[in-house]
Design a protein around this nucleic acid. Sequence first.
DNA 1: TGGAATAATAAGGTCAACCATAACATTTTT
DNA 2: AAAAATGTTATGGTTGACCTTATTATTCCA
Lengths: 222, 222
Amino acid sequence: MTVMHLSESTEMYLKAMAELGGQDAIAAARLAERLNVTPVSVNEMVRRLGEQGLVSHIPYKGVRLTKKGREVACNVLRRQRLWECFLYDHLKIEWSQVYEFACSLEHATAPEVTEALAGFLGNPQTCPRGNPIPAADGSFKPLDAMPLSEAKLGEMAQVLAVNATATDVLKYLQEKNILPGRVVTVIEVAPMQGPLTLHVGGKDVALGLSMAEFVLVKKIDK
Amino acid sequence: MTVMHLSESTEMYLKAMAELGGQDAIAAARLAERLNVTPVSVNEMVRRLGEQGLVSHIPYKGVRLTKKGREVACNVLRRQRLWECFLYDHLKIEWSQVYEFACSLEHATAPEVTEALAGFLGNPQTCPRGNPIPAADGSFKPLDAMPLSEAKLGEMAQVLAVNATATDVLKYLQEKNILPGRVVTVIEVAPMQGPLTLHVGGKDVALGLSMAEFVLVKKIDK
DNA sequence: TGGAATAATAAGGTCAACCATAACATTTTT
DNA sequence: AAAAATGTTATGGTTGACCTTATTATTCCA
């Protein structure tokens, strides 16, 4: 297999797709949101990625990673999350900033460096946001979790991972103590796509549904 | 002072100038060589850098870093060399590859990360190639050294630093044991810009003048 | 001092990744 | 089934950093 050089932009698109969708088709508009570009730009880029065999696009249905695309994406996620570990555990970088800084580093990381870093870190299994780190061969087992947005009134759940990437969102979650390991209780579910109200760390917190989608939890039986 | 975002390319030009010239004016052709671009491209870029107040260009005389340009360059060198330390000391990356990998990382490194990294490393003073690491404020004392290319027949000298950057050059120097700390003796100086022959580590080594320019040494009295 | 070598500038081209605007297609909702 | 919302495609534009080829300017050296 030819190891072409993939641009930073390409890596960002593939990573975003892996973070958002996993196996499923992703609406181009969702991609545009996460990458902060216009839907028109996404369309163009998706065409280019399609030509390279990295994604398949079914008009009006969404974009899906091909096998090849998923491999690349897992590799990007591996680099990203290993750097997150390093920045958080060793450099003591603020939790909410770790993603952002790791993201820049990730695109500048050669395979030799990735593997040496993994060794240095002791082959960690999860990043500070709780997400699993794909193995060197690209394999990784997804979390057995559901988005907090699907939790019902009165349910208790433990946060397993935070899949948000924007620093301001991460900062908000950090301030409100919605972090991996924490246990939250849903004490109100507002109608009309309204926010959830949670009890966590002795306090009540309102959380919009779209943010709650990126908080992955495991239900706890009472 | 406005903190505009400087492109990777800008950083590379400024860094190359700091590595090559220090205070002096640098011929555009030398820059073109080191950066592997055409002189025409250098000229264009130098104009852009001039407009940003980072360099001053005196036609037919050369390019020189302005105060502002030198500050940026020192900052880039700091990041570069700190990463070299990390890659070499902690990730055990091959000496000859360290520069190349650090170079990619350097452009992707936020100030917070730079300073946290410096702390993690214990504020090292030199990189694995022997070059001084500028302080956070940009200050740094240049080596008291001369290029090996200026050594005379019969002289002994200790290698203080290697200022080469190309991986294949570094690999050659590594194989021939021309590394910081080593002591070399000049046993032959060929005429017509010919190579130096050195005695180092029990072996004789031929070294072209242009390579010898990037080996910084301190003369040793016998 | 005149020619060679070197340096600079001009003109026009490429490429990736964006952008805006507008037209058109499809899906969803009412 | 029509209107609204969403998604797609077309067209044309921008920016940065490169490229080639050709011309002109300056410096160096014999």
